[in-house]
Nucleic acid binder design. Sequence first.
DNA 1: CCCATTGGTTTCCATTCTGAAATTATATTA
DNA 2: TAATATAATTTCAGAATGGAAACCAATGGG
Lengths: 118, 118
Amino acid sequence: METNGAEQRRLLQSAASAGCGVERTLKVLDGKWTTLVVRELLSGPKRFGELRTALGSPSAKTLTDRLRALEHQRILTRTVHAEVPPRVVYRLTEQGESLSEVLYAMLRWGEEHPLTES
Amino acid sequence: METNGAEQRRLLQSAASAGCGVERTLKVLDGKWTTLVVRELLSGPKRFGELRTALGSPSAKTLTDRLRALEHQRILTRTVHAEVPPRVVYRLTEQGESLSEVLYAMLRWGEEHPLTES
DNA sequence: CCCATTGGTTTCCATTCTGAAATTATATTA
DNA sequence: TAATATAATTTCAGAATGGAAACCAATGGG
């Protein structure tokens, strides 16, 4: 059974201010690039360099920071292949993949509401 | 007709990296407190002071900044009642209310995935 | 006349964030 | 013996962010 709009509204209204699910999700997706990293990985595992290019070149430091944080939160896994030069592959966990629900809601909203600023 | 999971995946994968809907949404919900302001207003219009209290007291400056930004983006309206002391009410626009889809996805994900860290 | 109240604004400062650049490690290739 | 390629890590500097504190406006009440 699908949750309808009125029900969604009710659930959101009763969400405790502190520590509600919304805040938990915000914490996971926190920081520049983080959400976009997840979006990129939804189309399949990617190497460090591939991610960097796809995102429009965040600094290596920043991307590393984000990947490490997502790894700690079990959103993705990091696999080092013992080759030379090294190949490191990032892949979403099941938990990470489930974020597609959130990302898809964002995609839809963004497309249905183009810029309305001045 | 409901979009199914496989279809969602496909749409997310084909989202152009730059300027896709996801990024548009991220831009609107950018900054500390912003998403939570929207969540609070989903339960109805609120005064400045009510928001401040409900959110756990962000600084007046920060809250003002966020409210102004959301107003510019037509997510909410600001109504000043000519009383003394002044009463200022913030209310979501139709566009703002439609963000409930995104917030609800976040709420669900957050509740279904409690902390898994260390 | 002074105070209280609400919703700010302004100034300033500390922290955080981000990026650029230099450095590292290692096996293969020229 | 370099040079090369990948994925970092480290250091450092500048930018962006957020918060604290002080100040302001307008009017009703004591």
